[in-house]
Design a protein around this nucleic acid. Structure first.
Length: 270
DNA sequence: GAGTTTGAAACT
DNA sequence: CAGTTTCAAACTC
């Protein structure tokens, strides 16, 4: 995989920029609407990447544990139910996480490849307003802090920050000094919080946290996919075949990633 | 499943 | 920047 990645490093910059879509925001957002719409990007790669994004639900920066250890989450993306936002506002979780909508229950959805111009325009609008609009909400906290915290803090008034209405609680992080919540019970020594934590549903049983997907691994994977896309173009393959080749390459990369992960955790692989 | 509550996002 | 409205998710019944 690394050797393939090294070869792919020599690819033209435009390829790399479009595959930036394969890594989470804000890298995705670096592509302007003009760049995207000029038709110079390889449609084969473009379309395959879209399929990867929509069918595999990755990448996403939101993790169930609230600790964005890696960009990809094993958990499937939760479908949204937007009715009025066209899924192009931050109300929409899919859009806010940098995902396309897929298998959602939304109405009049524009958060898909069919409306990419509108989608990119919306992204651009938000980034102009706030360059960190698509950054993960849970960050590491102040320099030197070990524990993660909500980057903006919450403003809860009635939930005591012990219900999923609260973004801190939902992300399983403590409220911090930047929160403006009233009647907060979401702090380390809180007896109410302790009671909730003792309930069985709180713990994430059966989940596998991927810790091995570093940026280097993501980059290497993207490089492999690019190499495959380029090869497909060189051989003048049909779009369908090219997509298949890229997807198969992705499968191989994924296998290797999971293999390394399981090995590092001491699981026996068949 | 329908209705209510909640708080973030958007708007004024 | 503060107050209000809109929105979608969480929650309750």
């Amino acid at each position: 995989m690394l050797e393939r990645a090294r070869r792919a490093k020599d690819l033209p910059k435009s390829f790399s920029s479009i595959l930036g879509r394969f890594v989470p925001f804000p890298a995705t957002a670096n592509i302007s609407a003009e760049q995207h719409g000029n038709g110079s990007l390889p449609s084969v790669v473009n379309s395959a990447v879209f399929h990867l994004e929509t069918n595999l639900h990755g990448p996403t920066t939101r993790t169930f544990t609230g600790v964005p250890i890696c960009a990809w989450d094993m958990k499937s993306k939760k479908p949204c139910n937007c009715t009025k936002s066209q899924c192009l506002k931050l109300y929409c979780d899919c859009f806010a996480n940098g995902d396309f909508c897929s298998n959602c229950n939304c109405n009049n959805c524009y958060n898909n490849i069919l409306h990419e111009i509108e989608r990119f325009q919306a992204i651009k609008t938000y980034l102009d307003r706030n360059p960190e609009a698509f950054q993960p909400k849970i960050g590491k906290g102040k320099l030197g802090d070990i524990k993660p915290r909500h980057n903006k803090g919450c403003n809860c008034k009635r939930s005591g920050c012990l219900k999923n209405y609260c973004e801190c609680y939902e992300a399983k992080v403590m409220c911090s000094s930047i929160c403006k919540c009233i009647g907060c019970k979401n702090y380390e020594e809180s007896p109410d919080r302790q009671t909730l934590m003792d309930l069985p549903h709180y713990s994430d049983t059966g989940k596998i946290a991927l810790t091995c997907i570093s940026w280097e691994v993501v980059e290497a994977t993207c490089a492999c996919l690019l190499a495959q896309g380029e090869e497909a173009e060189k051989e003048d393959c049909s779009i369908c075949l090219a997509e298949q080749m890229i997807l198969e390459e992705f499968g191989r990369c994924l296998s290797q990633i999971l293999y390394s992960e399981f090995q590092s955790k001491g699981f026996q692989m068949e």
